[in-house]
Structure formats: C-alpha cells, structure tokens
Amino acid sequence: MATTTTTSTVSPGPARPLDDRVPKNSLTTNRGGFWFVLPFLVVYALFTIIPVLYGLGMSFFDVSLAGKPAQFVGVDNYAELLGDSQVWRTLGHTLLFTVMSTIPLVVVALGMALLVQSGVRGQWLWRFSFFAPFLLPVATVVLIWQWLFQNDLGFINNTLAQWGLPTVGWLTDPNVALLSTVIITVWWTVGFNFLLYLSALQAIPESIYEAAAIDGAGPFRRLVSMTLPLLSRTTGLVVILQVLASLKVFDQIYILWAGGTGGPEGAAAPILQYVYDSGFVNYRLGYASAISYFFFLLIIAVSLGQLWLTNRRSANRKGQ
C-alpha cells in the first residue's frame, strides 16, 4: 500500500512596518540615559563652561579685587599685554622649559621602558621605582629637592665637593634656576610616560623579533628598524601630552621659591605665575584674564600644529 506524504507550505505573513519593530520603550530609554548624564552636565557647566565664559567677558573689563567698579575697556587689555615685556619674558621661560623638559621626558621614559622590557632581574622593583615619584604630591617633591639642592648642606653639592668638582647654586644662580626646575619635573613625571612606552612595547608581537633574529638582525638593528618605528604613535602621543603639560608649568616653580618669586631675578617665572601675580597680587583681574586667554589661544595653536604633523606623518607612512 503506497503512502502519500503531503507537504504543507505556510506562507509568511506580511512584513511588519519598521516602526513596529522598534521597541516601544526606546524613547523612554533615551530619556533615562539623559537623566543619568544630567548631573555631570550640570557640574561641568557650573565649574567649567560658566567660569570660562565669565573669564572671557572679564578680559574686556577693568576689574579689580580692590573693590572699585568694573569698567568696560574693550580690547585695551589685549593691546596692553602685547606691549608688556613681562608677558613675553615669562612666555619665553615657559617655552624654554617646555623644550628642555619634553626631550628628556621622552628619551628617558623610552630608555626606562626598554630596560624593563629587556627582561632584567627584579622587574617589579624597577617598575615601582620608576613610577613611584609620579604618585607623590608636588609639595612633597619640591621639599625633597629643596634639601638636595641646598648650597651648603645639600646632598648634590656635598657629593660634588667630595669629588673635587665646583658646587652649583641650584636655587640661587639665575643661569641654573630653570635647569633645576627641569630636573625636578623629569624625576617627578617621567613615570607616566614610562608606563605608556612599556604598554606599547608589550603589545608588539614577539614573533616579529624572532623573525628578525633569524634574518640576522642584531639588537641595535631591531631597535632602530623595528622597535622605534612601531612606537611612533606612542611617541607622538607622549610628545603631545608632555608639551601641553609643560606649557602649564606653575606649581613646582611657585613652591620651590617660596613667595612666588620665580627663582633668582625671576629667571624661571612662567607665564601662569605672571597671570597669578597680575590677578591676585596686583588685583588686576581683567588684565589677568586677557593674558590667560592669550595663552589659551597659543596652546590651541600648538595642539593643532602637533595634530597636523601627526596626521601628516601617518598619511606619509600609509602612502609608502
């Protein structure tokens, strides 16, 4: 007896409109996310956006802490700062400090990362030693180095004297004041750049070095031809972050020379200290705001210039 099998075909129903597929509570979900973000937006507006806009408006007024009424002066504050020799002098100190500190903070950090990555014994101790100073507050760092830099009782000058070398007026010689600040800053902040480089080195596959070793490349050739090019993005990031941080130098210089003198004869005074002195020592808040926004525009220009160079180098590498 033959068996007949019947296959029934179920036709799909009509496609639902796209609006029906969207969850009904999507709008409610977006509103819920907005309420979560709202506290941050309120705090950010109160402590960042509003003060920035208020300071920008203040730069067009003659505002004094002495209590006299504010007077609108237009762009007079900006015109005055362009002819103020102290503005350009402190700006020169800031730019020189940036150059002097950025180079060792990149080179030393890279060397420290290569040392740890090379497999030297006691890696945990090296990592802790290199990064620990970065965790110290600026006041502690300055107090340590004030003792080290003392002319008569300081450890560094005593060591130089024992070796028969001339001592240095680290805190009293105008020609050395900026260098002293650079030494303190490098010792204090190099640990952060060290971690960035170490993370980048650990992300490089070991197979690349093994293949290069098979081809006969020695350690120096692998460093120059492989490691440094592979770290180019990290180096660009470190340089950008360090330049921006060095341009904003203030704390260590202000505390190192108590009273905010900026070193002997003001030889290390940065532009941010002049902003502080103009606003809170000379009571000229409007003029201090104008200097701040002038310096802010300079930082933006430097940042855009660095970003353009980084993008151009990346485009050239892709083109090759």
Rank of each mutant, 00 (worst) to 15 (best):
T7N: 14
V10T: 15
S11Y: 14
A15I: 09
R16Q: 05
P17G: 03
D19L: 14
V22P: 10
K24L: 11
N25Y: 11
N30P: 10
R31D: 05
W35N: 09
W35A: 10
L38H: 07
V43P: 11
Y44D: 11
Y44P: 12
F47W: 04
I49L: 13
G55K: 03
L56G: 05
G57S: 14
D62C: 07
D62F: 07
S64V: 08
L65M: 13
G67P: 10
D76H: 06
D76A: 06
N77K: 08
L81I: 09
L81C: 03
L82I: 09
Q86G: 10
L91Q: 06
L95V: 03
L96E: 07
M100T: 05
S101K: 04
T102R: 01
I103P: 00
I103W: 09
I103R: 03
L105D: 06
V106Y: 03
A109E: 04
L114F: 08
L114Y: 04
L114V: 10
G119I: 01
W126D: 02
F128V: 13
A132Y: 10
L135W: 13
V141Q: 04
I144C: 07
W147K: 09
F155Q: 09
N157D: 05
T159R: 10
W163Y: 15
D173Q: 01
D173T: 04
I184Y: 00
I184H: 00
V190H: 02
L195Q: 02
L195V: 04
L195Y: 00
L196F: 11
L201I: 01
A203T: 09
P205W: 04
I208T: 15
A211C: 09
A213C: 13
D215T: 14
V224T: 09
P229Q: 07
L230P: 01
L230H: 07
V238R: 01
V239L: 02
V239N: 00
L241H: 08
S246T: 01
G259Q: 03
T261C: 11
G263W: 02
A267G: 03
A268R: 00
A268H: 00
Q273E: 12
Q273F: 14
D277N: 14
Y287I: 10
L297E: 13
L298P: 00
L298H: 02
I300D: 04
A301F: 12
A301H: 08
V302Y: 03
R317T: 03
R317E: 11
G319C: 12
